[in-house]
C-alpha cells in the first residue's frame, strides 16, 4: 500500500510517521500514536468530541486529513498537563465539576484552552460561541460555563 511520510510536532515532541494517505488526523492520533484521550463521537465533524488544536486553532480531527499536519503542531488532551501538574483549564473543570460522563470533555477542554489563549477575559456570549461546536448531553452546559470562567481566573493567577 502507498504511504506518505509526515513530520510534525505532537504535544511538544517531534514525531515522524509513515501512513496511508487517506488516514484522518483522528485515526493517526488514536490508532497510530495511541493518544486515545481524543474521542470519536460521530466521525463527521458534528459533535466536537474529537476536537484538538492544530497550530493553536481548534479543529475536528475527524475532518482533517493527517497529511495536512505535515510540518505543523498538534495539541491533544494528553499534552496539557506537565508531569503531575494539571493545566489550569483541567483544574477548573475538576473544581467546578464541568463534566459528567467525560466523553466530550477532552474536546471541551481544548476548545476552552483555545478560547482563553486568544481571549483571556471572554464574556458569557463569547464562551457560548466558543463551545458551540462541542455537544454535551450530560451537563446542560451550566457547569461547563462555570468551569471556563474559573479557568479564566486560574490562568490570570498563573500569569
Amino acid at each position: 500500500m502507498k504511504t506518505i511520510d509526515l513530520r510534525f510536532t505532537i504535544n511538544g515532541a517531534k514525531e515522524r510517521v509513515s501512513i496511508p494517505p487517506h488516514r484522518t488526523l483522528l485515526e493517526l492520533l488514536r490508532d497510530d500514536l495511541q493518544l486515545i484521550g481524543t474521542k470519536e463521537g460521530c466521525g463527521h465533524g458534528e459533535c466536537g468530541a474529537c476536537t484538538v488544536m492544530l497550530d493553536g486553532v481548534t479543529v475536528n480531527s475527524c475532518l482533517v486529513l493527517a497529511a495536512e499536519i505535515d510540518g505543523r503542531s498538534v495539541t491533544t488532551i494528553e499534552g496539557l498537563r506537565s508531569g503531575d501538574k494539571l493545566h489550569p483549564v483541567q483544574q477548573a473543570f475538576i473544581d467546578e465539576s464541568g463534566y459528567q460522563c467525560g466523553f466530550c470533555t477532552s474536546g471541551v477542554i481544548l476548545s476552552t484552552k483555545a478560547l482563553l489563549d486568544a481571549n483571556p477575559h471572554p464574556s458569557d456570549d463569547e464562551i457560548r460561541q466558543a463551545l458551540a461546536g462541542n455537544f454535551c448531553r450530560c451537563t446542560g452546559y451550566t457547569k461547563i460555563f462555570e468551569s471556563v470562567q474559573a479557568a479564566a481566573k486560574g490562568l490570570e493567577g498563573d500569569r
Binding site: I36, T76, E78, Q90, I94, T105, I109
Partner: peptide, 19 residues
C-alpha cells in the same frame, strides 16, 4: 466536594468502550 472521577476524565486517561 470534587467528584472522584475528575483526574481521569480531564486528562483523557479514562478508557471508554472503543479504547
Amino acid at each position: 466536594l470534587p467528584r472522584v472521577d475528575g483526574l481521569e476524565k480531564v486528562t483523557g486517561e479514562a478508557k471508554y468502550g472503543a479504547d
